[in-house]
Each structure stands twice: as structure tokens, then as C-alpha cells.
């Protein structure tokens, strides 16, 4: 049962073992509606494993994950209905157009979005109208990412999981994406984002965690101004702290 104080995403004492190796070790964090938690770390730190565990594709060996109070292992369908997932490679169906991809995945999620909503989402992500009926096989990575983000927007889920969302995007596309994420954050969407992009994370995240060898070794929380709006985190401070941690 979800109450007003139920976190959008709760990860508590999470342990995940894959191939006899502890990939996540006693991971703890939670985020509420309107918060963006950026999880940073090197390759193999356990970032993507965290996301896959939240979806329910991997089972915790210990500890728990709860999305809006529900455990993916117990109520996978309910959990997945409340979250959208965006992968690093935005793996759309290449033989379908942008619009067809959106319609397919929305229908798969049981979401009935009208044409206007669909066009509005594509406008929001800035995909050119001329490209919307083209097969996504011809799309650049940035264009595919825009379609995937439009899908996440259209699903209107309270939780958004992002796996390296700006990887491979040009600086303009990264900036557009970050602005979009801030918009979603302000709409009350809880976002868990794993990324290598420290600058982008500091700009959009309300909190940042550093993951190393499956452990959360450091975390930062952004200040809020008088109106309760989050201030961007200080990149230098975070980088310095992370450098100290990773060299420790």
C-alpha cells in the first residue's frame, strides 16, 4: 500500500550476486517524487545492475528494492507499469518509424496516447517532423534517444530509469536532454539515472552517488533555494570528492 510518505524508489541493503561475484554490495538509497538521483561510477561498478534489479530483471540476493512500495520480485507487472526505462543505446525497432515505435511500445505498456499527445512529445524532445515517419534505422543515436525519451514522457510514469542517457549525444542534444529532465523533475517524476556525465549530473540531479565495486562510497545532495528549487551541484566539489574517493 502506498502512502504519502512512500518513496518513489527505495533501495535498501541491496546485494546482487552474478556469476558468484557480488556486483552490488549493501546498496542503500531512496528518492521521492520530483527527485533525480544520479548514480556515477566506473565500468563494472554495478550501475546498470542497479537499474535491471529495479525493473525486476535481476533478483536481489539480499536486501530489497521497492518502487512506490512494491517489490519487483513480488509484483513485477505493477512495478513495471509505474516506471519507464531508457537504455544507453535507445534500442528501438529499426524497421519501424519513430511514430510506429512510439505507438508499438505505448500499446505494449497498455497506454493509449492520441496523435496530439504523440506529436507534442516529439515536439518536446525536438525530433524534426520530417524525421518522424522515417525508419529509425536511418537515425543518429541522438535522434533515437529523442524517440526513446518521447516514449518515456508519453508513458507518464512516476518513476524513470535512465541508463547512460546522454552517452554519445552531441553537446546540444545533451543540453536539450538535461533541460527536458529538469522539466520532468519539476513535474514530479522520480528519476534514477546512471551516467558517466558528471557535468550533466550536477546540472539536473537533486542528489548524486558514487558507486564503486557495488558499494555507494559517496553521495551529495543539492541545496534548495527559498522557493524550494534545487540548485545545481558544484561540479568541482563533487569531482574533487570523487577523485579523493577513487584514489583512496
Amino acid at each position: 500500500m502506498r502512502s504519502a510518505t512512500t518513496p518513489a524508489l527505495l533501495v535498501r541493503n541491496l546485494h546482487v550476486t552474478r556469476g558468484g561475484k557480488d556486483v552490488l554490495n549493501n546498496l542503500d538509497f531512496q528518492l521521492a517524487a520530483g527527485e533525480v538521483f544520479a548514480l556515477l561510477g566506473g565500468n563494472g561498478a554495478g550501475k546498470s545492475t542497479t537499474l535491471l534489479t529495479c525493473i525486476g530483471l535481476l533478483a536481489p540476493s539480499r536486501g530489497e528494492v521497492r518502487v512506490l512500495g512494491r517489490a519487483p520480485s513480488e509484483e513485477p507487472e505493477a512495478v513495471r507499469a509505474s516506471l519507464a526505462y531508457l537504455s544507453e543505446t535507445a534500442t528501438l525497432y529499426e524497421h519501424l518509424s519513430a511514430r510506429e515505435n512510439l505507438r508499438y511500445f505505448l500499446d505494449l505498456a497498455g497506454k493509449n496516447a492520441g496523435n496530439e499527445a504523440l506529436e507534442a512529445a516529439l515536439d518536446t524532445v525536438g525530433l524534426q517532423p520530417a524525421a518522424r515517419d522515417q525508419r529509425t534505422a536511418r537515425f543518429s543515436k541522438g535522434m533515437r534517444q529523442k524517440v526513446a525519451i518521447a516514449l518515456a514522457i508519453l508513458r507518464e510514469t512516476p518513476v524513470l530509469l535512465l541508463d547512460e542517457p546522454t552517452s554519445g549525444l552531441d553537446p546540444v542534444a545533451v543540453d536539450e536532454f538535461n533541460q527536458l529532465l529538469i522539466t520532468l523533475r519539476n513535474r514530479g517524476v522520480a528519476v534514477l539515472m546512471v551516467t558517466h556525465d558528471l557535468y550533466g549530473a550536477c546540472e539536473v540531479a537533486t542528489s548524486i552517488g558514487l558507486l564503486r565495486d557495488g558499494r555507494l562510497v559517496s553521495s551529495f545532495v543539492a541545496d534548495t533555494d527559498a522557493q524550494g528549487r534545487h540548485r545545481p551541484l558544484d561540479v568541482e566539489m563533487v569531482r574533487h570528492a570523487f577523485s579523493a574517493r577513487t584514489s583512496a
Binding site: 530483471l57 505494449l108 530509469l161
Partner: peptide, 18 residues
């Protein structure tokens, strides 16, 4: 191989049914 399983799972809820 296309890396689409997580997206399908997150979208479909019950991928076995899919």
C-alpha cells in the same frame, strides 16, 4: 542482442506473455 529486453520488460510488464 539488440539490447531491447529491458525496454520490452519495462514496457510489457509480463514479458513471458509477450
Amino acid at each position: 542482442e539488440a539490447g531491447r529486453i529491458p525496454l520490452l520488460v519495462a514496457s510489457a510488464g509480463n514479458v513471458r506473455r509477450l
